[in-house]
């Protein structure tokens, strides 16, 4: 039985459709109820819905053999997994944003508000820039407005929220999209089934290009 962790929400539903098209359907998942685990014994698959940021943990710890997680989560937590495919879904970017017209003159420590402390620290370490990281869990955009930080590091999809808060993207750190990931040990013992899924999803991604 192949255990598959899917992220709850719209992205997860799109991803499940791809698995279904790959021939690994599980009709009970389409039923309206509050169940979180769905199994198709004939196809030897078991799906479960988990919080998107938890998918990588389920896969790294072997509760799921494969799963779909955002690149932002993979970069932030660096789980020890295989990253098998870019599904090119949920595309956005990790970016530095600041109040319109902000210029970093490099004369003092840059205050950076973010939920993604690891990504922000890595980015500025590569630039050799001294920063003070302020870890926030939400409403990151208001940090520079209230003087809590100089800039923010956050996910930017359309840029509308930034614009409405008078912020603008200063630089893009990395493009983000959903990735098919696999547990390293699970991959060894369920390789054939995982490769079949990977190959079919790869073809579907190509068709959408």
């Amino acid at each position: 039985m192949l255990n598959i962790a899917l992220p709850k929400g719209r992205l997860g539903e799109k991803v499940y459709s791809m698995f279904e098209a790959a021939g690994f359907e599980c009709p009970s998942i389409r039923e309206t109820n509050r169940k979180l685990i769905f199994e198709n014994t004939e196809k030897q698959v078991r799906y479960f819905w988990v919080k998107p940021s938890d998918v990588a943990i389920y896969v790294e710890r072997g509760a799921a053999d494969i799963g779909v997680a955002g690149k932002d989560i993979l970069l932030e937590y660096e789980p020890d997994i295989y990253e098998l495919l870019d599904l090119e879904l949920g595309k956005c970017r990790m970016a530095v944003a600041a109040p319109a017209g902000f210029r970093d003159d490099g004369k003092r420590t840059l205050r950076v508000a973010t939920k993604f402390t690891g990504i922000a620290a890595d980015h500025y370490a590569r630039l050799g820039r001294q920063i003070d990281i302020i870890k926030l869990n939400g409403s990151i955009e208001i940090a520079p407005i209230l003087g809590l930080s100089d800039v923010i590091v956050d996910i930017v999809e359309t840029g509308t929220t930034l614009k409405e808060n008078n912020l603008e993207v200063v630089e893009t750190i990395v493009p983000i999209s959903a990735r098919l990931i696999a547990n390293k040990a699970g991959f060894q013992f369920k390789r054939t089934q995982i490769e079949r899924i990977q190959q079919s999803l790869k073809e579907q991604v190509k068709q959408h290009d």
Partner: peptide, 9 residues
């Protein structure tokens, strides 16, 4: 090395 039933190397 990996053993079946153990989630990591």
């Amino acid at each position: 090395g990996f053993l079946s039933g153990i989630c990591e190397g």
